[in-house]
Amino acid sequence: MAYRPSRRASLSFEWIHTNITPMMNLMVVLIPLLLTSAEFVRLGVIELNLPPAAMGPEGEVLNSLPQEETRKLDLSITITDRGFFISSSLAVLGGEREGEPSVPKIKRNDNTLEYDFQTLSQKLYEIKKKATDRFSDSENIILMAEPEIDYQTIVSTMDAARSIQVNGKEELLFPNVSLSAGIF
């Protein structure tokens, strides 16, 4: 009797290849499309709206307006090369010594001075807590700066004045920032 080859040995495992060509076509089309429309640098804007200037000479307008009934805070930050001065219509927030800025610059590791935005936010947060409900303009802040202060410092100060992270939650401080020509 002839020898019968084993059936089990001829039962080879047939490897099924998925046809991924259509998928590849899709990828080849989609990836260049998305690459061209991708935004790698994200831009943002800071809104600053001035009141329209078409109101005639400033002095006349101010005189003809009725007297303010509500109490105003008129909070302002002055950026100097020594640090920030925080002031309101009532008082200037004092530093540790007489004549010192409210928030002085701090020393970095390499002995250069830099602005202390964290402390500024913290102080503004304390003011905000006290000022809410007591003043009509507890959303507004005026920014003044010395002539040589650079743009980045102004923008960072605006950020510090706009909001603060308290316990992982964002709290609004004074979102309506206006710039003042101030000290020249």
Partner: peptide, 29 residues
């Protein structure tokens, strides 16, 4: 970003006085 404040305020004042009072400062996010 290194533009001094006295230049910036002049540009902004000019915009404000030239019928463009709604300013948008462009920044990197």
């Amino acid at each position: 970003k290194h533009l001094p404040y006295r230049f910036l305020i002049k540009v902004m004042a000019t915009c404000g006085q030239s019928n463009y009072p709604n300013m948008r400062l462009i920044v990197y996010t």
